[in-house]
């Protein structure tokens, strides 16, 4: 057993030598598990250099759907989790997987759909009623179907409308089982409605016939939270640098960096941290 272990370390060490990126060992970095929506929107590329400049800490972002992003955190494969499924986040903090959870910012979801608007929801203000109309008219709707934060939000809306769309899976309701971008590509390809976060939508390049059909309903607000993987469960977690990141993103400086990120003059994320650092 000992020998096998040594052998493995040898093999792994030589892998590192061969394939390690040009990163000197002394450099400090943390791994942040986040969602495709934040990564795809370009937010991280905007704010992380600021953080690096302040602290010298490099942030490596692994972007997955919220479900997988949380799982990566539970397994201890990252230091900080930055996602948008508040209910799940709070539950997992209670279960002891994470500590130091804080609200960071919110953005909003929009319902996008084809210009022709077969369900006739353009101009409506109530997201629930709009979904009910899509259901009633049988207009195609694509869903992430991937346990992501966006998917969870969508399912909450359907539930509020008293509709179980999964019964119509494969008919007017199509689950792509993939990320926001892929789902938007699908919606664009088949002129379907879908629920998307505004950030991904704004930076999305393949809109085709799609337009924003409904926006502004408060129920479409999407809260992002940040939390540290519990070092008591995973001793290797980089507690100090991880907390430094959390502190910074909650600080006036970090919140300002978030607010400053715009695409085509539109602000994507609205900082709303309650504490400004500790």
């Amino acid at each position: 057993m000992e020998l096998t272990r040594r052998l493995w370390s040898g093999v792994l060490a030589s892998c590192m030598l061969l394939a390690a990126p040009g990163v000197p060992g002394a450099q400090r970095f943390i791994t942040v598990s986040s969602t495709t929506s934040t990564e795809n929107s370009g937010l991280f590329r905007h704010i992380l250099p600021v953080f690096k400049q302040r602290t010298g800490i490099e942030v490596r972002v692994v972007a997955q759907g919220t479900g997988q992003a949380l799982d990566i955190g539970k397994r201890g494969d990252c230091d900080v989790v930055f996602v948008h499924d508040k209910a799940a986040e709070l539950r997992m903090v209670k279960e002891g997987w994470f500590v130091e959870r804080h609200d960071v910012m919110y953005n909003d979801f929009v319902i996008v759909g084809p210009k022709s608007d077969p369900a006739g929801i353009v101009g409506m203000k109530d997201a629930i009623e709009a979904l009910a109309k899509i259901h009633d008219t049988g207009a195609p709707f694509t869903s992430r179907g991937d346990r992501s934060g966006t998917h969870a939000a969508e399912l909450r809306l359907w539930k509020a409308a008293g509709i179980n769309p999964t019964k119509a899976t494969g008919q007017w309701y199509r689950e792509t089982g993939s990320g926001m971008g892929a789902t938007l590509n699908t919606a664009s390809g088949m002129n379907a409605y879908t629920l998307t976060d505004r950030g991904t939508w704004l930076s999305f390049g393949n809109k085709g016939e799609l337009i924003v059909a409904l926006e502004g309903d408060e129920r479409l607000f999407n809260q992002y939270g940040v939390m540290l993987v519990n070092p008591a469960r995973h001793p290797h977690v980089k507690r100090g640098p991880g907390l430094a990141f959390i502190d910074w993103i909650l600080s006036r400086d970090g919140q300002k960096a978030i607010a400053h990120y715009k695409i085509n003059g539109q602000q994507l994320f609205f900082p709303n941290a309650k504490t400004s650092g500790r």
Partner: peptide, 26 residues
């Protein structure tokens, strides 16, 4: 790899990323 920008992003994961951003020509 996790497709981490500057660390583990390779050609294929970059392609997947740009596809999901809808930047199909890139």
């Amino acid at each position: 790899g996790g497709n981490i920008d500057g660390v583990t992003r390779v050609m294929t994961t970059a392609i997947a990323l740009e596809t999901s951003k809808g930047d199909l020509p890139l």
